[in-house]
């Protein structure tokens, strides 16, 4: 990212009457961003507060207690579900982001080619059908494959997740690459860099913000999926959303709040560590 460190000093010699213009500060934008953050975190704060509630209900506050953390730690079912969710999410994110990156490279930065519209439609197809329909149809297909090959396992669930993660990973990467300036790559190639070197040193770093954004979206989508998972998951493959969804009618307990809090905490710690080590290397 060292390629573009910006100086935003207001150039001198401006005619009178024009305020110095800080480009990074469009009026109200930072306020909106902070507001956005506030809105995003308000429910999370409530969720965390209620994970410490003594009451069984997720709606009324009584008093502070750690009982839901204790019971979540004793609840094998919810732990397994969280573990399966993480596994499926991680695999689906990696695979779909990789595939989407390749596809985005192929569909941008060049003149259009015949069939591009079709390719675009195909990649976005998983977005376009209501989940329940995809779920029923995928189940029918997988059941057939299982019957023919006799192979079962969690791979099917990961595959199903990979499919609907691809468009979510693809779109930000494509947005990043579209209209991208090719001069750097061409310059490198002119300087006798091998194609691989050009890709590793120039193209990949340029794409990175898109890839990171795409991967994050893919993970979020996989981690939240209910309907497709409900249909495709085999025995012992209950994910966290399925576990919670199954509880809706009989009443959700704050155990789920406790587990969600733990997941948030875990990701904060993980990212903080990465940040720390990333900084030190610099």
């Amino acid at each position: 990212m060292a390629d573009r460190t910006l100086q935003t000093t207001a150039p001198g010699g401006k005619p009178a009457g024009r305020r110095p213009f800080d480009l990074k500060r469009q009026t109200g934008f930072s306020e909106i961003a902070w507001f956005c953050l506030f809105v995003l975190y308000a429910p999370i704060a409530v969720l965390i507060v209620f994970s410490f509630n003594d009451n069984r209900s997720v709606t009324l506050w009584t008093e502070f207690s750690l009982r839901w953390y204790r019971s979540a730690l004793n609840n094998q079912g919810i732990q397994n579900a969280a573990m399966i969710s993480l596994q499926v999410g991680a695999v689906a994110t990696l695979v779909s982001t990789f595939f989407a990156t390749l596809a985005a490279l192929a569909t941008t930065r060049n003149e259009r080619f015949r069939g591009e519209g079709l390719v675009y439609a195909v990649i976005n197809q998983p977005l376009m059908i209501p989940e329940i329909v995809t779920a029923v149809a995928t189940l029918a297909l997988f059941a057939l494959i299982k019957q023919l090959t006799g192979v079962g396992g969690i791979g099917y669930l990961m595959l199903a997740h990979t499919v609907f993660c691809i468009p979510f990973a693809y779109m930000p990467i494509r947005a990043r690459l579209e209209d991208m300036n090719l001069t750097l790559e061409q310059a490198a190639a002119d300087l006798y860099a091998t194609p691989l070197q050009v890709f590793r040193r120039i193209t990949l770093p340029l794409m990175m913000p898109g890839i990171v954004a795409g991967a994050m979206l893919a993970f979020v989508v996989s981690f939240d999926d209910v309907i497709i998972t409900l249909m495709v998951a085999g025995p012992g493959e209950t994910t966290l959303p399925i576990y919670i969804f199954g509880q809706m009618r009989r009443g959700i307990t704050p155990e789920t709040n406790a587990v969600s809090t733990l997941i948030v905490l875990l990701s904060v710690v993980l990212v903080a560590l990465l940040f720390f080590f990333g900084k030190r290397r610099r």
Binding site: V136, L139, A140, L144, K146, Q147, G152, M231, G234, P235
Partner: peptide, 10 residues
């Protein structure tokens, strides 16, 4: 729907 769809294993 799931059992009819052929979910084996349960």
């Amino acid at each position: 729907a799931k059992i009819k769809g052929g979910a084996a294993g349960y």
